[in-house]
Amino acid sequence: MRLTDKLTTGRPNIEVYSETLMELAGRDRDIIVMTSDSRGSGKLVPFAEKFPDQLVEVGIAEQTLVGVSAGLASCGKKVFATSPGCFLTARALEQIKNDVAYSDFPVNLVGISAGVSYGALGSTHHSLHDIAALRAINNIVIVVPADNHETRMAVRAAAESNSPFYLRFGKRPMPHLYGEDEPFEIGRANVISGGNDFAVVACGEAVAPATGAAQLLYNEGINVRVISMHTIKPLDRETLIRAASECRGVITVEEHSVYGGLGEACAGVLMEEGISVPFRRVGIPDEYTVTGSQQEIFNHYGISPEGIAGLIRSLLKVSASGGRV
C-alpha cells in the first residue's frame, strides 16, 4: 500500500472467518465447526443454518469443546473449535496441551473476541495471556490475522494443514491493508509499508494503528516499515532480522500482555542474533487493565497512531543524539 492512501474499512475479521468456513464446508463434509454457546459471537448463525450437520454445539463447556474436537480430528474431521479466546485458552488449556498438541491432532482452535475486544465487560473476558500460554506449548501454529484478507487466507491454510492451529480474532471492522491477491503464507510476515527509518512489528488489530502511525510520520519525512507478523509461531525471523538490521529501531505492538507475546518473541530473536537497536514493546502492561472500550484501552496504552508515532519520534530523537535509549 502507499502511505498516502486512505484505508478503506472492511468487515470484522470474525465475519470473514465465518464466510470462509461456509465456502470450505460446502466443498468438504469433513469441515466441522464446534461452538460453546458461542455461535452468535462467532458470527456462525448462518453457518449453523446452512450446514446444521457440520456444526456441533457443546454448551458452555470449553474443556469438552476441545476434547471432543480432538476426538473428531482423530477420525479425520477438520475441526474449528470456536470459543471466546479468554475461556478457550485458559479453561481448556490442558485439553489444548494434551489432547490436541501433544497427541498431535490437527484441531483449529479459534479464539474469538480476543484481546480486549470485549472492552468494558472487564478482565474476566479479556485474553491477554493466550499467545503467551500457547507459545510455550509445542506443536501449535499461532496466527493473529490483521485484516479480512489475512483472515480468509489463514482460515484456508488452517483447514489444509495437518498441524494444530490457534487463530485469534477480534470483533471490530478492520481496514483493508492488502489487495485481494496479495500473497499470504503461514510463517512469512507481510511488509505493509516500506521504509528504513524505523520498523514496527505488529499483529492482529494492532496493525491498523501501526499503519496509522506510519502515515502520520510519513508526512514528517519519517519512513516507517510496518510489518504484519500474522504468524507468531513459527516466527518469521528473517523478515524481523532484516528490519532490525536496516532500520534505526524496532517497536512491537500487540493486543496482549507485554509478557510472553509478540514483543518478547521478537526480542529473543534479536538478542540471539546480536542485533542491538532501540527496541520497545507496546502492549498491555502488567497491571490491572484500565477499564473502557477496546478503543479506549488501546488509546490508554498507546496502541494508537498517535501513541506509536510519539514513541517512534522519541526513540529516533534519542538515537540521533547518540544517547542511550
Binding site: T64, G67, V68, S69, A70, G71, C75, N98, D99
Partner: peptide, 24 residues
C-alpha cells in the same frame, strides 16, 4: 490412540470419536 494421563480427558475425547462414527 491418544496421549492421556492428565485425568478427566478421556470421556470427551471418546465422545468426539463416537460422534464422528455417528456422522460417518
Amino acid at each position: 490412540e491418544f496421549n492421556t494421563g492428565a485425568l478427566g480427558h478421556g470421556l470427551a475425547i471418546s465422545g468426539g470419536i463416537a460422534l464422528a462414527g455417528k456422522k460417518d
